[in-house]
Computed example of a mutant assay.
Amino acid sequence: MMSYGSRFFTKALFTKSKTASSSCTALSLVRTHFASSTSLPRVRAMATDSAASSPFKKVQIQRENTTFDAYVIGKDNAPGIVVLQEWWGVDFEIKNHAQKISQFDSGYKALIPDLYRGKVGLDVAEAQHLMDGLDWQGAVKDIEASVNWLKTNGSQKVGVTGYCMGGALAIASSVLVPGVDAVVAFYGVPSPELADPVNAKSPVQAHFGELDSFVGFSDPKTGKALEEKLKASGVPHEVYIYPGVAHAFMNSSPEGIQRRKNMGMNDEDAATVELAWTRFRSWMTRFLSS
């Protein structure tokens, strides 16, 4: 059974599409667009590095009566960035993102909290099941604990970034998590019942694809509505909508590109990815540099 917090999110993600017939929900559109999960290959669950050779350090973070694993990479005492997973879990792609972020500019300490507690979806059906089962309010608490861990362990300032599901949670952190100094969200907006961006307290930069078809979650109309809410909040903000790309366009590893192609997304665009990273770097430098 999905949690109360998860219902907030899935209501936004799988609302009925106004452009489709009344019997066709966004969920069925996504499944049709991505094809049957049984036709998808099972991809690598984690980065190929062995535990001994992995550049990530595994740490345990405590919040309330719960302990969860997190993966850290980067310079000690550098500004921190919490990196939030897509619906797949802590797999090769989110680790690729975190490793890249850690090497930007003079260096960052990137931390990935394991919101699924070790589980990873290897196909669309598994990822959907894991996301439906997520305690969203608990995930926000995980983010807060991750921010606090970074600030306790040498990072004077801490940002939050995320992708898809993680993008929505990153924006939620700008509303609900004290001590967040900057947010960059990629293609995800939380339901207002979980966290209304009109109440954002941290600077927010957000990125969307013009061809994104996740109505009510990350399509261009939702991105533009987010921009209006951020204007009303009064926080510094930037919202970008990139022409010619669909959902998850930042996934540019060979495995990530193949996975998107298996889902029917053939809009690979290295220039767009580089532009988005350049804007990410500028935003985090602006708000996290001492």
Rank of each mutant, 00 (worst) to 15 (best):
M1K: 13
M2H: 09
S6F: 04
F8I: 06
T10H: 13
K11D: 06
F14M: 08
S21M: 14
S28T: 15
R31Y: 08
T32V: 15
S36Q: 07
L40H: 09
V43Q: 10
R44Q: 04
S50Y: 11
A51L: 14
P55V: 08
F56P: 01
V59F: 13
R63E: 08
T67F: 08
P79D: 13
L84D: 02
D91I: 00
K95V: 04
A98N: 02
G107Y: 05
L111R: 03
I112V: 07
I112P: 00
I112S: 07
L115I: 08
K119P: 00
V120K: 01
E126H: 05
H129S: 15
D132L: 09
D142G: 03
I143F: 09
W149S: 01
L150A: 08
K151D: 00
S155C: 00
K157S: 03
V158Y: 06
V160M: 03
C164R: 05
G167A: 12
A170L: 11
I171T: 05
I171K: 03
S174F: 02
V175K: 04
P178L: 07
G188H: 11
L194W: 04
L194H: 08
V198A: 13
A200Y: 09
A206C: 05
A206Q: 07
A206G: 09
H207G: 03
G209W: 06
D212M: 12
S213N: 13
V215Q: 05
S218N: 06
K221I: 13
K221C: 04
K224W: 05
L226N: 06
S233Y: 03
H237R: 06
Y240A: 05
I241S: 11
I241Q: 12
G244R: 14
G244V: 09
H247S: 12
A248N: 04
M250C: 10
K261E: 05
M265C: 03
M265F: 09
E268M: 10
D269R: 14
A270Y: 10
A271E: 13
V273E: 07
E274L: 11
L275H: 14
T278L: 10
M284F: 15
S289P: 05
